[in-house]
Design a protein around this nucleic acid. Structure first.
Lengths: 359, 359
DNA sequence: TTGTAAGCGTTATCAG
DNA sequence: CTGATAACGCTTACAA
């Protein structure tokens, strides 16, 4: 016993671990129904139910019912090496981008009888390896990966080993794995067009990490869009953020302001980076959108409540998750089907952080 | 019983993949080391390593190493009925309150060799039951529950059955289960004192659901604090929200304004409810804090970027999660230890949504 | 249509 | 100290 108990709780001593009734097993059910376990198994499994007589099936079902029988998925997995579980590999659940994607995934998995096991990698390759190994040893039947980098030896190796997986949001360079992403290029084009239409002629870009497909696709799309609108593709107007974070966004914005402050608008690689801009605006008393317009990407929650409300590219998080899950289920259940990749449609969400340039 | 097994079960032919090299088993290792599987098991398990000679231990370890042996947790669970997994029952991962708590939990579990299985209930008792059953059938060694209601037959029954669990945030009435919550009463007292100090004399409260302990503790604390500051405890200044949501917060605020608009400040049951107030302010051109001051609860992410930045009660989400995980681990590993409950300290985070009353 | 038996990969309990 | 053996709860040839 610990000598120091917090005084706060004074619960009365109680009998340790009350009757934790053993869950009943298949044998219990079989016994209760007066049949062999094998028969009970067949009766309980829709796939094999046809092999037993209707009468015994009924008896077994009834017995299972009264005993409150729940099949033990662990034993089943051991025997069948299936788990009806998929792994979900995220960089960080705390990023508001992911929860809606997770919900989308779960909404598709659940009706199929599957569940998702969520892990965070914190963008640490060590952790990622450990987490994925742990998932695989738990017999997950596939992986949904949201942490892909363009150069990603681990994922490449896994693909070579035939590991079933689907990428969300980002992809690995030259790796033929089913992927679902937002239509990043179109999103950026919409953002640039919006700013150009407002009359902006010097537009900057705070790019996401160029180690990720999302980062390069968006920044490439930015440069194309700029030229399409007849503006100069000035490299000094593009700054790369090392990570998709508010802090990195702020750093990049400071860098940009140090270089040249004649730009009147900025396309941020994503919403967090845009929030970093807001921080710098606050510290330097820059007014948005009066002095500088900002567009984000993702339309994460609560952006409409910011000051000013952030104009951004809306992506269908939930649908992206759902589609990824559907793809993975397809890979599992119809392995012969050719893998697809999909680009989900985006839309510009115009709010208060963009206006005509004042200069 | 299961009248209908998930459709997934019907899957037929085992999908054969490319060269998915069979993971090596304990027998492979034993064979490679020239010992019996049992010996290999002992050598590999730190707990029983003392039972084998140093020499064989070394050989086994080496063999395991070269074969890339990974123990199969499923087989282990089946044998030992332990899983080194705990279940985490959330109402909705999409609520920004939870991800940091989850991280806190994982940060404690991981070093202990445990992982967490996260499920959402959507506040639906049906779903909750199904999810918890699924978790239990997967042999989770304990549950961290964030969905407790004051009257919660399922949780009460589980407690009677001796299910190991810990509550976070909310509790069940008269149920002696280890719980970690924020110090809600103090938080509300701080909020009311702050408003009183600013000179407010008619303060309203948008209470959370009174079906939850958090809701009643906070609203009771509100009434106490009001009286402590010499104000009248006017029931018409308290409106209950049916759910902890922005929409319900907005509805409650409209109701309140309909009753009597002479209040100058409102203490919201939580941040989402406070956001609902913002929505109503926007639609009715009420200025915050000039016309009405607002205080939230929880300090969820990005509140500092709102307009105006929301004054709120900061709670240590991460630490709450960590403490809950620690408690559950204690219950698992030292069952004789007396269960505690803890209240985590909170602090008032003063931002721009509160000021002196203008009326 | 049903029972028998083997075995999934471990670990626990015996002997030796 | 180590090996044999028997489970854990389930599925699935194969036999009857």
């Amino acid at each position: 016993m610990r000598p120091d108990q917090p005084a706060a709780l004074q619960a009365t001593a109680e009998p340790r671990r009350p009757q934790a009734r053993q869950p009943s097993t298949l044998r219990d059910v079989a016994e209760a129904a007066g049949v062999h376990a094998a028969t009970a198994s067949r009766a309980l499994n829709p796939k094999t139910q046809g092999l037993v007589s209707a009468a015994t099936a009924r008896r077994v079902l009834k017995a299972a019912e009264t005993l409150g029988y729940q099949p033990n998925p662990i034993a089943r997995s051991l025997k069948t090496s299936r788990s009806f579980t998929v792994g979900l590999v995220l960089p960080d659940l705390t990023n508001p981008l992911f929860p809606p994607i997770v919900r989308g995934i779960e909404d598709v998995l659940a009706p199929g009888g599957y569940s998702a096991w969520i892990v965070n990698t914190d963008n640490d390759p060590q952790r990622e390896l450990a987490q994925i190994e742990s998932l695989r040893s738990r017999q997950v039947e596939g992986l949904i990966i949201a942490t892909a980098r363009l150069d990603h030896p681990l994922l490449r190796k896994m693909h070579d080993e035939g590991v079933r997986m689907v990428f969300v949001n980002r992809r690995v360079e030259n790796l033929d794995v089913p992927t679902v992403t937002a239509d990043d290029a179109t999103g950026i084009a919409l953002a640039v067009k919006h700013l150009a239409d407002l009359g902006h002629t010097r537009i900057a870009h705070l790019a996401g990490p160029q180690s990720t497909s999302t980062g390069v696709v968006r920044s490439r799309a930015f440069r194309h869009a700029i030229r399409d609108h007849g503006m100069a593709d000035d490299p000094s107007l593009v700054v790369e953020c090392a990570r998709w974070s508010e802090a990195d966004g702020a750093g990049a914005m400071r860098e940009l302001l140090g270089r040249d402050d004649r730009f009147t608008a900025v396309v941020a690689g994503n919403d967090l980076i845009a929030l970093g801009c807001y921080d710098v605006f606050a510290e330097r008393r820059i007014s948005c959108p009066a002095d500088i317009s900002v567009v984000g990407f993702n339309d994460m929650p609560f952006l409409d409540k910011l000051s000013p409300p952030l104009t951004t590219v809306g992506v269908p998080h939930h649908d992206i998750g759902a589609e990824a899950a559907r793809m993975l289920l397809d890979c599992i259940e119809q392995p012969e089907r050719h893998p697809r990749s999909v680009l989900m449609a985006v839309s510009l969400v115009i709010r208060g952080s963009t206006s005509r340039p004042s200069r």
